[in-house]
């Protein structure tokens, strides 16, 4: 059972790392717009055709 003295701090540390990543993502503004990304991921990317040199 003494392995618990090592395992628990490691578990907490792993969780804390995830927490740190989450907080970073929040501070980066990744949670500010919760409406467009779920729509964006529904649409498949298509290979980009070459851009035409002139407008239209």
């Amino acid at each position: 059972m003494s392995v618990m003295y090592v395992a628990l701090p490691i578990a907490i540390a792993l969780g804390a790392t995830a927490l740190w990543a989450c907080v970073r993502a929040i501070r980066n503004g990744q949670f500010d717009d919760l409406d467009s990304p779920p729509m964006r991921m529904l649409i498949d990317d298509k290979p980009q055709p070459p851009k035409e040199p002139t407008d239209e």
Binding site: L19, C22, V23, I26, R27, G29, F31, D32
Partner: peptide
């Protein structure tokens, strides 16, 4: 909103 989200995550 970000501050509240950070609190929520914690």
């Amino acid at each position: 909103s970000q501050q509240l989200l950070v609190d929520l995550a914690l």
